[in-house]
Structures are given as C-alpha cells and as structure tokens.
C-alpha cells in the first residue's frame, strides 16, 4: 500500500519493540558470556545495518556495489574525528554517515543516470577508488599502515547526565547493544520509508522511470535521495566497525564486502525490508557453523550460497510467504 496511516503503523512498532527487548535480553543470556558468540552477533547486526542501504538501492532498481566504499569513508571519518580532531565518538558516528551521504549525493547525481550492469560496474569502481584514495593520502590516513589503536567510545552525557557510560577495554556487551540498536533503528526507518509514499515512488522508479517522470515525479531527485540514505547507512556502519576494531586500513572494506552486502539482500529476499537481516543471519551463521571443516569452509560456504540462490531466486523470505499464502488458500477452500 502506498498510504498507511498512523494506527496501521502502531501495532507493528509495538511488536518490534517487544522483539528488540527480547533480543537484547536473550542473546547475552544464551551466549553464556561467550565472547565469540557475542562477537558474531554484533558483527551480524552491523553488517545487516550496512546491507539495508544496498537493499534500498535495489528498491529503485540499481545494483549498488559502492557500499563498502562508503563504509570505508565512514570508518575513516570516525577514525580521524576521534584520533586527530578529538571529537567524541558519539558525534563522529552520525558525522560519518553525513559525510558519506554528502559524498554519495555528489557522486550519485551523475552516476545514477546509469542502469543495470553499467551502474554496477561504476559503483564497483567507486569502492576500489575509495581504497586507493585511502592509500594515496598517508598524511591523513597513514596509508597502508592503517590507523591503529583508536580510542574506545567515551561516555555520552547530556547536561551532566551520563546516558551511555564509556566503553571499557575488552568489554563486548556495549558493542553488542550499540550494533543491535543501530540494526533496529535502521530497520525501523527502512520499514517506515518502504511503507510510505516515498517507498511507492521508489518502487515506481524501479519499474518505469519514464512513466514516473511523465506523472511529474522528479526522478533524479528521488534517485539521489535513495542513494544518499544508502550511503548514510554505509557511513554509520563503517564508523561503527572502526570503533569496534579500534583500527582502519584501506582494506577494511573492499569490493568483496560490497559483494557480500549485495548477496545478503539476495539471499534474504529483495521484496522484504527485513531481507538483508535474514540474509546476513543465515549466511553468517552457516559460515560460523562450517568452521569445523577448516580449510574447506569457504568452498562449502560458496557452494551453499550458490545453491541458495538457485533454489530460492527470490530469497528465503519468498519461500516463507509462498507457504503462508498456500496455507491461507487451503483455509479458504
């Protein structure tokens, strides 16, 4: 539906809050203090946050392989802000998103005229260009040596009231909560956007830009908005990883990461806002479970990925939906 009024969004949001609370309480309990599990879940949450952006560019009909490039931009903005400029991490994180979005807007304006394979190719080049740029300015980025030993996030306080305490060395829970919060807020915003009129306009662009423009829709503007939002997600996600790992290298985010962000969207299902999250969950869990196979891990993983896309070309969620609509049909009969 293109519309969606306020009462129709209240219920899903209430449900979402419940699930979020469950997640924040259950995961730490179930992990039993295992840093390994918490690490995997934290990474998964942050990675799906970044992938939401790729999903949004799919919504306007573009295959976006620039996401890792903009994540790298975000990572460097956070690193430079906290290490050189002495800014608080809590300022640096949204700033990273903002910088990525602005650069995304400037690059996106001309580039978004391209479609299909051409857009995919040029965004792939953008990711590579970001890596090379990071290498070329060692004065600011320290080049291939990378920026290391970044300070941990300090406390966030308003009017002397501490809202978020400073992160302690070696503590994993704060990052788990931060990544989870980002993921939930990121999903909430995507969902609000997708079910709004703006979401309908984005879908119309994917289906027929000429028809949309004949109706008075400023196609170029909406395309850039979608791309800037995607870049914002990348920038914030990149900034998060800089803080989590306390370092940034030009290789922290590369073309292969862009490909993974895209694959998570495919595997989960492009029709569903939650698709990237499901994709990241399934893919990253199976990767970790394949750990026993040691050196065959990557081979088996790639095989599974191919199988997944072959058997469920519209993503895992499309299968779930087919089941439920079949069940509905059976009930009606």
């Amino acid at each position: 539906m293109a519309g969606g009024s306020s009462h129709s969004i209240a219920k899903p949001i209430a449900l979402g809050v419940l699930i979020a609370l469950g997640y924040f309480i259950a995961v730490p309990l179930l992990s039993g203090g295992s840093g390994y599990v918490l690490n995997v879940v934290t990474t998964m949450a942050a990675v799906s946050f970044i992938s939401f952006g790729v999903w949004l560019t799919f919504a306007i009909g573009r295959i976006n392989l620039a996401q890792a490039g903009f994540a790298l931009i975000g990572a460097y903005v956070t690193a430079i802000s906290v290490a050189h400029l002495g800014l608080s991490f809590w300022v640096a994180l949204p700033l990273s998103g903002l910088v990525a979005a602005i650069i995304g807007g400037l690059i996106g304006w001309p580039v978004l005229r391209l479609k299909g394979v051409y857009f995919a190719m040029i965004t792939l080049c953008i990711t590579e260009a970001c890596r090379l740029t990071a290498l070329s300015f060692p004065g600011i980025t320290r080049g291939a040596q990378g920026m290391v030993d970044l300070p941990l996030p300090g406390d966030l306080s308003l009017f002397g009231l501490v809202i978020i305490p400073a992160f302690e060395k070696g503590a994993r829970l704060p990052f788990f909560y931060l990544a989870g919060t980002l993921m939930m807020l990121g999903l909430l915003f995507m969902w609000l956007l997708d079910t709004s009129r703006v979401g309908a306009v984005f879908r119309s662009l994917r289906q027929n830009e000429d028809l949309a423009s004949s109706l008075g829709i400023n196609v170029a503007k909406y395309r850039v908005v979608a791309f800037m939002v995607a870049c914002f997600y990348a920038g914030v996600g990149g900034g998060f990883f800089a803080a989590l790992q306390q370092n940034v290298y030009p290789t922290s985010f590369q073309v292969i990461d862009s490909v993974y962000f895209m694959v998570y969207c495919f595997v989960g299902g492009l029709e569903f806002v939650i698709g990237p999250l499901i994709g990241a969950l399934v893919m990253m869990t199976s990767f970790e479970l394949l750990h026993e196979f040691q050196r065959y891990q990557t081979v088996i993983y790639s095989g599974l990925m191919i199988l997944c896309i072959l058997l469920m070309p519209n993503g895992i969620l499309s299968v779930v939906r087919r089941r439920s609509s079949k069940a509905k049909g059976a009930n009606n009969a």
Binding site: M1, A2, G3, G4, S5, S6, I9, F189, L192, L193, S196, R197, V198, A200, V201, R203, S204, Q207, N208, L211, A212, L215, G216, I217, V225
Partner: peptide, 29 residues
C-alpha cells in the same frame, strides 16, 4: 505501466505530484 503495482496503487502514484508533505513528513506520517 508499473508491472508489480495494483491498478489502485498506480493511480495513487499518479497523484504524487499534488502531495504537499515533505519527504520526511511522508516517511514519519
């Protein structure tokens, strides 16, 4: 036409240019 859109949704989209809310306004209802 918009391949995956219902007739009604396509017509609603035709009305987009007369919407007065801002982008953020549309997203946050």
């Amino acid at each position: 036409f918009f391949q995956d859109m219902s007739v009604r949704d396509a017509i609603l989209l035709g009305h987009q240019k007369d919407c007065k809310a801002s982008l953020a306004g549309m997203i946050f209802r």
